[in-house]
Nucleic acid binder design. Structure first.
Length: 544
RNA sequence: GCCCCUGUAGCUCAGCGGAUAGAGCAUCGGCCUCCGGAGCCGUGUGCACAGGUUCGAGUCCUGUCAGGGGCGCCA
């Protein structure tokens, strides 16, 4: 049982005994940054002083006194501090119980939640046009979207990953025309695609191939290949064309007409999106009878709502203007716009040799995502993309991320995991086994380094829950870096094996090491980064 | 002009309305008879500015300034 439940129950009982009515619905507990303030602290006296009609400091004092008379399990001290905080000092036994919980739960269970059980969520991400390879900027949305999906899965949701393919429209025609031009040895038109990949792909293209269909297949294959290399697997590749064939687009338009959500003007059909927070109304059907990009996308989201309860979209910052109209469209179709969460990833810029690499759609100058993965490796690419909040613009330094030096946090974390396995291997060679958990004396874990690991393990479930709720996988990255730091510190100060180590201590520490392994494995899996059991420095990669 | 994101240490960035704001890198200085040194320890005048809400604001609200992105019957 989480010690927080014990403390909260005790606080509520104490408040009742003190005649506080009503007892507040929520009793907040937090871990103070300052160790002098104990292991856990509640602000309940500050929060409820007003309704209780009491001075917060006096209420806190009364609460602390009352709790001190019959302290809850693990509690060895209760004090009032500052303006009225009630601070709990706990015996280390509460952390030893955490370790037992971690070991019993294992990597499959620790940090798993069930609040999403029964809820279907579709995470749509990447969704790049099939007119060229994915570039380095797409990598951020790809790794982010996949990690968000993993977080939802960890919280019990039923998750599907979807890639929406704009396989129809003028861009496809421009792409095909560009391929055809290069294949015929001609320059591409000004509004065509100018990248080097067009030249390369045109050279691959059979002479009798339909440039549009061949190019479409080629681009899709490129997308799938690089995404697979990053361990990103989509459940559904949803074709825009399929909705033309199925009538889904016509049906969506008909629904909107019945609801009075569209009108005709200047020969076009408009969506009344301004009635639901958009800056202005948007065209669905152009004057020439062709649908805009928005029309099939609305139909697509209508389709998704037929298959899921919650939709999560990942857009690049250059599409943020699209958010209001999509929410409006969903409202006009009778859905709750709050059930469509749209995450925006800020831009990625690239550096190589400290110089910014300019990306230009105009000239086709780009760094392909496949190049990034090839240069730095899948693990380093994923970890780096998930290092920062997606609200912050990111500078991705290819040389730095590729380098196997200590500036690179992914190796630091993976090394911690590899070290654990090294210890376990050595222990087995020496005939040391953990044995059964019930036979281990975890109370021998008293070193600050040991307790630090246990506190970190206790925080993991909260970090996972919050990362999911805020769709912020970088919080897992932050957690795992801290966990790795705690483990390296422990490794340095506390020997697990050796002649001078008491066998019971070795056993307890082997269980601690197992707990750390579980935590690292859970977090790395959420990030989609491998947890190697050994890793060796490339001797060619510099001396440190 | 309107919309979104950002402004925290020399640099890159974390930071859930709580008490004395953290990490990595960089700088300088320590630690290898020891489970892998891709490691550990020490070294820090910092929340853009001005109001407001609150017992309490880096965090929430308003405004200003600065940087990035977006504002099409393109996708």
């Amino acid at each position: 049982m989480d010690v927080r439940h014990i403390l909260i129950d005790a606080v509520r009982t104490a408040l009742t005994d003190l005649g506080i009515d009503p007892v507040p619905d929520v009793v907040q507990l937090e871990r103070p940054a300052n160790p002098d303030h104990g292991d856990w602290s509640t602000n309940v006296a500050l929060a409820s002083a007003k309704t209780a009609g009491q001075n917060p400091r006096e209420l806190g004092t009364a609460l602390a006194d009352h709790l001190s008379t019959t302290p809850p399990p693990h509690v060895v001290g209760v004090e009032v501090a500052g303006p009225g905080f009630v601070n709990f000092r706990l015996a280390d036994s509460w952390l030893h119980e955490v370790l037992a919980d971690v070991v019993v739960a294992g990597a499959d269970g620790w940090g798993r939640h069930d609040h999403g059980v029964g809820v279907k969520v579709i995470v749509e991400f990447v969704s790049a046009n099939p007119t060229g390879p994915l570039h380095a900027g797409h990598g951020r949305g790809a790794c982010y979207g996949d990690s968000v999906a993993r977080l939802y899965e960890r919280c019990g949701y039923q998750v599907a990953r979807e890639f929406y393919i704009n396989d129809r429209g003028i861009q496809m025609q421009n792409f095909a025309a560009s391929l055809a031009a290069r294949a015929g040895g001609r320059e591409v038109a000004d509004d065509g695609y100018h990248g080097q990949y067009i030249v390369d792909w045109a050279a691959e293209m059979p002479i009798d191939a339909d440039p549009l269909e061949w190019g479409y297949a080629r681009a899709l294959a490129a997308h799938q290949s690089v995404l697979e290399s990053l361990s990103i697997h989509f459940d559904t590749w949803f074709s825009e064309r399929s909705m033309m064939a199925s009538g889904a687009i016509d049906q969506t338009l008909a629904d909107l007409q019945v609801a009075g959500s569209v009108y005709e003007e200047d020969g076009a059909v408009w969506l009344r999106s301004s009635e639901h927070g958009d800056d202005k109304d948007r065209v669905l059907i152009k004057g020439d009878g062709e649908p805009t990009y928005l029309m099939p996308d609305v139909a697509y989201h209508r389709d998704k709502f037929g298959r899921a309860d919650l939709l999560v979209n990942v857009f690049g910052a250059d599409h943020h203007g699209y958010v209001a109209r999509m929410h409006a469209a969903m409202a006009l179709l009778g859905h709750d716009p709050g059930d469509l969460e749209i995450a925006i990833t800020q831009l990625v810029s690239l550096q190589r040799d400290g110089q910014e690499v300019r990306l230009s759609k105009r000239t086709g100058e780009m760094v392909e995502l496949a190049e990034v993965v090839d240069e730095v490796g899948a693990d380093a690419a994923r970890f780096t993309y998930l290092l920062l909040s997606v609200d912050s613009p990111q500078t991705f330094d290819l040389d730095l991320v590729a380098s196997q030096v200590n500036e690179n946090p992914v190796f630091y974390v993976q090394y911690a995991h590899a070290r654990i396995h090294s210890i376990v291997r050595r222990a087995e060679e020496a005939g040391n086994r953990r044995g059964s958990l019930v036979d281990a004396d975890l109370s021998l874990l008293v070193h600050p380094r040991e307790l630090e690991i246990l506190r970190a393990l206790h925080e993991l479930p909260d970090a996972v829950e919050r990362a999911c709720r805020e769709r912020a996988p970088h919080q897992v990255t932050t957690w795992v870096r801290e966990m790795a730091s705690s483990f390296h510190g422990f490794y340095h100060d506390c020997r697990v094996l050796g002649d001078g180590i008491d066998p019971a201590t070795t056993t307890a520490r082997l269980w601690l090491v197992e707990g750390a392994r579980i935590g690292l494995a859970v977090a790395l899996d959420l990030l989609g980064v491998s947890a190697p059991t050994e890793m060796w420095r490339d001797p060619a990669d510099g001396e440190n």
